[in-house]
């Protein structure tokens, strides 16, 4: 079971507060390792708040926590706050502007029962410093 979605990234208040505590604090990492989905999409996949879900784009795949949210007013749209998790699945191309395409990427969402959200060090060792 999976569905296709448009992936958006952006700021959230918790992320804003978390980053002021320290960019490696648990609070910050928690605030940016979530994915807002439309409640109907969540229901169809049998997902509750806090369940692990895997988001996959053409650039990569990452596990985050599901967060059914009224911020998403249309099914088929998902949102992950700015931060290292979102970036693991973002593309590098900037269309000659310097700006990567952080909003509006095609993605697939699927439940990831039993899979764990990585912490900072794991992100570094498994994704970045290879």
């Amino acid at each position: 079971m999976k569905f296709k979605a448009i992936l958006l990234t952006g700021r959230s208040l918790k992320q804003g507060m978390g980053k002021e505590l320290s960019k490696v604090s648990e609070k910050y990492m928690e605030s940016v390792s979530i994915c807002e989905v439309h409640p109907k999409d969540a229901e169809e996949l049998g997902l509750k708040e806090g369940d692990s879900i895997r988001i996959t784009t053409q650039f990569g795949s990452i596990v985050v926590k599901c967060n059914p949210s009224q911020n998403i007013d249309k099914p088929g749209i998902i949102f992950i706050p700015y931060g290292p998790y979102a970036n693991m699945i973002m593309g590098p191309d900037t269309d000659s502007t310097g700006m990567p395409s952080f909003k509006g990427l095609s993605a697939e969402v699927e439940p990831a029962p039993g899979e764990r959200v990585l912490n900072v060090k794991e992100l570094l060792s498994q994704h970045l410093r290879r």
Partner: peptide, 30 residues
């Protein structure tokens, strides 16, 4: 490192760099 797309961040990990920051960030860790 936390704010650039993965492939871009990976390339940053390949070069030597120094960080000035009040906190230890993900970028600082590498």
């Amino acid at each position: 490192l936390a704010h650039f797309p993965k492939n871009v961040a990976q390339n940053l990990c390949k070069i030597p760099y120094a960080v000035i920051d009040p906190h230890l960030s993900m970028t600082a860790l590498a």
